[in-house]
């Protein structure tokens, strides 16, 4: 269970938050009416889904209800940057995240 630092409230338990998907996917200006179907489909459905650093959105849904952005490592689950909407700091320079131990599974 993550410990997430809400930029307004401070560190809180993951259960207070909701995940909001990939960040910085701007809605096409004017509503995409000049886009091809494929371009529009990319906006609606396609995501980078990276293994490693991911810019994503969270909302403090059981707290201040405010949205914010984070950079999280999708392998280590480390939250590396947390920033407010409208901001977009550069990605931190990091060593390549290690492979997770290959768990035994079932």
């Amino acid at each position: 269970m993550f410990l997430i630092e809400c930029p307004w409230c401070g560190p809180r338990d993951e259960t207070e938050f909701s995940y909001g998907g990939e960040a910085h996917i701007a809605r096409p200006v004017g509503g995409g009416h000049d886009m091809t179907n494929a371009e529009w489909g990319h906006y609606v459905f396609h995501r980078t889904n990276p293994k490693g650093l991911h810019r994503e959105r969270w909302v403090h849904s059981h707290g201040c209800r405010r949205w914010f952005n984070v950079v999280r490592d999708t392998v280590s689950h480390e939250f590396l940057l947390i920033y407010k909407p409208g901001e977009k700091p550069d990605l931190p320079a990091l060593p390549k995240s290690p492979e997770p131990p290959d768990g035994p599974g079932r």
Binding site: V75, H77, G103
Partner: peptide
Amino acid sequence: LVIGAGIDAYTSYGQRGSFH
């Protein structure tokens, strides 16, 4: 007893989810 949990909402390649 083999019990399945729901998916966690966040994306991950970590082969682990949250305890709650």
